[in-house]
Amino acid sequence: MEIERQLLSTVDQALLLLMILIIMFGMGASLTTREFGQAFARPRAFLIGFLSQFGLMPLLAFSLALLLQLPPALAIALILIGCLPGGSTSNMFAYFARGAVALSISMTAASTLLALIMMPILLDLYASGFAEQIQAGLAAEDPETTFIIPTGNIIISLILVLVPVGLGMILRHFSAGWAKTAEDTAGFFGIIVILFLILSVSVRHGGLFFRTPVEIYVAAVGIGLTGFTFGYLMAKVFRLPYRHRRTISLETGIQNGPIAFAIILLSFSQPWQNEMLWLAVLYSTFIVITSSLVTLWYRRIGAYDYEVHRNEVVHQRLFGKDYQSPQPRDNWLKGRSVLRDKPEDLVR
């Protein structure tokens, strides 16, 4: 796959960056400082989530890159995606998947901050090998140019996107109503961005969709799906409640796409930038579809568990903190749709 021209024009890039700022602002508007602290309120679930996001996900990305034998630049992009913090859309998906929204929000909040430390370390661990491959290739042609992972730039890009998040939080502090509007608008922009990118790319590089090799599609779709699967399994191994499993699963698979765009645009140069951006575009497109489907699935299988949980929550809120919600005697639950009291009694 060769992308001969720039994937995005300079105007497009500027627009994209602007939209990213708006999205990050909206994400900030959904957060309060309390959410950061709440991570410590349920340390177990949070720790497992952390392991899943920053332990499992980068490893999955790395393994996928090796398994699919991706070209080094794409491998770096995939690992970069794997190391990203959670996106704010995961909160919405967690809500509809009948998950634990509070856990999702605090994981998003905390991982966004922790990314400042974790991303450089993880990229160094997993991506430096691929960087050396690029460097080796370059050295053969022209010993003057060099390629290294621009760790400093990445941190700066991260800090840059965190500024609107902070501004959004300030808005939230002063006006919850406006913050909600900002959050929705940003969510809407999320969809617009993806469509804008796809449209822009289609116009400039008509056949790119067809020229993209299948393993790149597999990587773009697979990183999300494996994230969902292994995130769920991890939470299951640690015997977390079902709704936490669903939350961690979604939180692991859904990464903050806009940050990936920002980092790639601000930290990597051509010709690698094109390929890396393309993978990020594909990931962002497919993750919306896969996470919607997974959410619908979770919503279905989680209905029973969620109803029981909701009932307990309401009981404890209304009847007192110590109220233990009893359940029907065993025989009730064994599948029969109508329990008759001695059928022969029923004169009809």
Binding site: A303, S325, P328, R329, S337, V338, L339
Partner: peptide, 30 residues
């Protein structure tokens, strides 16, 4: 999801049966 309901020949038996099966579960809240 199938309906799961108690059926009895009369309401008094239904009330009795409900106490047997549902026991300490809340029936009414004020």
């Amino acid at each position: 999801m199938p309906q799961q309901r108690l059926i009895a020949p009369n309401l008094a038996r239904l009330y009795e049966k409900a106490a047997e099966v549902f026991g300490d579960m809340p029936a009414f809240a004020t």
